[in-house]
Design a protein around this nucleic acid. Structure first.
Length: 161
DNA sequence: GCCAACGTTGGC
DNA sequence: GCCAACGTTGGC
């Protein structure tokens, strides 16, 4: 199993929204590096759900990948802000996965708290100017964040993942 | 292939 | 609202 971090603006779609809808297409990613990470995801992978452009920013919950990458519909939708006129159905440029909620973290882990974790000193998220909306997370990093959030991988996977 | 201009992200 | 950092675009 691999671990990831997904950014979302809570004003647009926050972790509580994921719990409300039950599952969600992770579409609209328009960065090649982030897209490549989406394509590496497997069903069952866990992802930290990060609230960006929030006060405070931080990790609110954990999601699970429930479907691997397929072409992102929005790239073909002329009415969508994510429409990409240079993409073709023959060779789609952008991908999306589907995610479902696992659990809200008992303690919201703020960006400040993330910065204070020694295990995360090399993590791209806490480095200046990072803009990637999909990031890989190592098992050590995952454990550290979950511990700071008041849970653990064992606890999360015991609930039937 | 270079690189200036531009648009976007996201913390503050 | 500001602005630094970054990715992309497009003229040359």
């Amino acid at each position: 199993m691999r671990y990831w971090l997904l950014k979302s603006e809570p004003d647009v779609f926050g972790y509580p929204d994921l719990e409300r809808v039950g599952r969600e297409e992770w579409n609209g990613v328009r960065n090649y590096q982030a897209r490549n990470f989406l394509r590496e995801m497997n069903v069952g992978d866990l992802a930290l759900f990060y609230h960006s452009n929030a006060s405070p920013p931080g990790v609110a919950g954990v999601a699970r990948v429930v479907r691997t990458a397929v072409p992102d519909d929005l790239q073909f939708d002329e009415t969508s802000p994510y429409f990409d006129p240079r993409s073709s159905r023959h060779d789609p440029r952008w991908s999306m996965v589907q995610v479902a909620p696992v659990a809200a973290l008992p303690t919201f882990v703020t960006l400040d708290a993330l910065r204070s974790l020694p295990e995360l000193s090399d993590f791209a998220l806490v480095r200046r100017g990072n803009r990637l909306s999909v990031l890989p997370v190592t098992p050590t990093q995952m454990q550290a964040v979950l511990r700071a959030g008041g849970t653990s991988i064992d606890e999360l996977t015991a609930v039937g993942v």
